[in-house]
């Protein structure tokens, strides 16, 4: 079995963080999350990190791997060479709680403000008969609220007040399918210097999103909608 070298960012708020190297033996079919869990289980129980589902649906295990935002549970070890070092650091632009752990509540609060529903009723299967014992078919939204896009965004780096790619994508998603929701409120939320207009099209959110949300395109559609809305109000005399 190959031995992998991991360099993890360690430390707690209040002291300056340092990089520490660990070695773990694992087959090449394993994933980065397995390596980090093994370090936690066998070498250091104080290691802070987050995970739950192990299959890219809870969004808990986002980190930066060699500088790039990834989900640990779908980052295969075979991508790396046992001779090299896999450097793992916490996401940027979130309050740091220690080791690989960050506080994602600022993003979660914004998503809640939008009223983003993670689970929706599935309309594709709406007119089909339900299987025995199943009450309703639901569908997950693409966005798993992992925060990778926020960490990758250079505007987020500079502006804490920026709504951020995930939230703007959520607003656009809600507007596309409002289901009786308050679209005017969402548009006001987006139409802000720190909202849809703050984006500088660095395109990093779409590049790192593990779930094909494509926040960059969503922000573009949101802007188009805001422009049309403005023109309509302007021509229609403030209606």
């Amino acid at each position: 079995m190959p031995t992998w070298q991991l360099r993890l960012l360690r430390g707690r708020p209040g002291s300056s963080p340092r990089l520490e190297t660990y070695r773990v033996e694992l087959p090449a079919e394993a994933y980065l999350i397995d390596a980090v869990e093994k370090i936690w289980a066998e070498q250091d129980r104080s290691l802070l990190f987050r995970h739950a589902c192990h299959h890219a649906s809870c969004g808990a295990c986002g980190v930066r791997v060699n500088g790039r935002e990834r989900l640990m549970c779908i980052t295969p070890l075979r991508e790396f060479s046992p001779d090299g070092v896999i450097q793992v650091e916490p996401l940027r632009h979130f309050p740091w709680l220690g080791d690989l752990l960050v506080d994602v509540s600022p993003m979660m609060r914004r998503m809640a403000e939008v009223g983003f529903a993670i689970i929706r009723r599935d309309e594709l299967t709406a007119d089909r008969p339900l299987p025995e014992g199943i009450e309703q078919i639901t569908r997950f939204e693409d966005c798993i609220e992992c925060g990778l896009c926020l960490s990758a965004c250079p505007v987020m780096a500079a502006d804490e007040a920026y709504l951020g790619p995930a939230t703007l994508a959520a607003i656009e998603r809600m507007l596309a399918e409002p289901r009786g929701g308050d679209t005017a409120r969402l548009l006001t939320l987006a139409d802000d210097p720190h909202g849809a207009w703050r984006c500088h099209s660095a395109m990093e959110c779409t590049a790192v999103c593990p779930s094909n949300v494509d926040p960059a395109s969503a922000i573009g559609r949101l802007r188009r909608r805001l422009i049309v809305e403005k023109l309509r109000r302007w021509i229609g005399g403030g209606r």
Binding site: V155, A158, D159, E160, P193, H200
Partner: peptide, 14 residues
Amino acid sequence: RAILLDLGIGPGTD
């Protein structure tokens, strides 16, 4: 202005 906004300028300063 867009660049200076990224220096963390608040609404008052803006």
